[in-house]
């Protein structure tokens, strides 16, 4: 029953509280309540009754003229900002998002594994792990093996990213336009998002916890056994592996969350946010390409693979900072 009044409140939330609007809301609420009670008396469950009442509610734009709010409906629809999404399309989109999250997570894990292998093998070649292997010509083989693995794994990751890009391309419109859902389906998505919230929180806390543990282990051993390079390199590898697992957790939780947000026009996908988000997106791709170039150039010129990875966490944090600034700048302009 509350669901019906919540729904009605939502529908009227952005309308001016004129006498006509208040009267319309009361009358519609009365009719919906009567219908709900009747359906319940006929033996429908709470869910069924709410679903039927909401699906038979109709569309407020029908009342636009009577309520003197026609300008609002015109401005919203004439600029073609909306895209209608059916329940089947919405479900397919969520399913694709789940698969995309897995693929991107696997791709990132593959890249990190490649970085781990080059760090490990270049450490091995320099005789970090065993004094007998120090110096000498044949050790270049190990570097070659590490690099080879890196390229194979990166190629695999790029393949996964491209495949994901192709399958999710047709849903790009959900990022740009406001989504209009069937009211009954909207209710289902709202519930799904609510159920997903604790899952997301758990995934983020586990991911952050793992990374903090690995960073702490690295920092502590860096202080205690400064000279034990073998231990430090191994811990860097462990840290990168941990980042791989955590990123996978963040992606699988976060991408589903943003799929719900896109469908509901909430979170990062409200009208104002969508505007500033497109600015961030224009930034993101040249930014990350530059980071990759800097990382590869630094690594190949100095051959210091065990240090150059630091560029990733630094550019990740900077990216977060830049997008926050862009969001703040765009919203203050409005």
């Amino acid at each position: 029953m509350d669901a019906i009044f919540n729904y009605l409140d939502n529908m009227f939330a952005h309308l001016p509280k004129t006498e006509e609007v208040v009267r319309a809301k009361n009358e519609l609420g009365q009719m919906m309540e009567d219908k709900y009670n009747q359906l319940r008396a006929e033996g429908c469950s709470d869910n069924e009754a709410v679903g039927q009442v909401i699906s038979e509610f109709g569309n407020l734009s029908e009342l636009a003229e009577e309520l003197g709010i026609s300008n609002q409906y015109q401005s919203a629809s004439s600029e073609d900002k909306f895209v209608s999404v059916t329940a089947a399309e919405g479900e397919a989109f969520i399913e694709k998002t789940k698969k995309a999250a897995n693929k991107i997570g696997t791709g990132i894990a593959a890249i990190l594994l490649g970085v781990i292998s080059i760090i490990f093998f270049s450490g091995y070649a320099e005789g970090t792990f065993s004094p007998t292997l120090g110096g000498g010509e044949p050790n270049k083989i190990y570097i070659a093996v590490g690099l080879g693995l890196l390229f194979i794994l990166v190629a695999f990751a790029v393949y996964l990213f491209v495949m994901t890009g192709i399958t999710t391309e047709k849903y790009e419109i959900f990022e740009k336009k406001m989504v209009k859902l069937d009211p009954h389906y909207k209710l289902i998505i709202q519930e799904a998002k609510e159920n997903h919230r604790p899952v997301l929180t758990r995934k983020i806390s586990i991911g952050v916890g793992l990374i903090l543990l690995a960073v702490a282990a690295l920092a502590v051993s860096g202080i205690l056994s400064e000279d034990n390079e073998a231990l430090l390199i191994s811990l860097v590898c462990v840290l990168l592996a941990t980042v791989g697992v955590s990123v996978w957790l963040f992606l699988s939780g976060g991408m589903i969350q943003s799929a719900y947000d896109k469908l509901l026009n909430e979170g990062d996908y409200t009208l104002e946010r969508r505007k500033s988000e497109s600015v961030v997106q224009r930034w993101a791709s040249p930014y990350w390409s530059l980071v990759v170039v800097v990382y590869l150039a630094w690594s190949f010129i100095t051959a210091d693979w065990s240090k150059s990875w630091i560029i990733w966490p630094i550019s990740g944090v900077s990216f977060g900072l830049i997008s926050t600034i862009i969001h703040a700048a765009t919203s203050s302009k409005q």
């Binding site: 319309a24 009358e27 519609l28 009365q30 009719m31 919906m32 009567d34 219908k35 009747q38 038979e56 509610f57 109709g58 569309n59 407020l60 029908e62 009342l63 009577e66």
Partner: peptide
């Protein structure tokens, strides 16, 4: 008659072939 009463009579009399949406009725 009142809102829901009319709405139900429409559905009943049309033998469930037509249900008038609340917004249509109020409008």
């Amino acid at each position: 008659g009142y809102g829901y009463e009319i709405s139900r009579k429409i559905t009943d009399r049309s033998q469930g072939l037509y249900t008038m949406k609340e917004t249509t009725l109020y409008s």
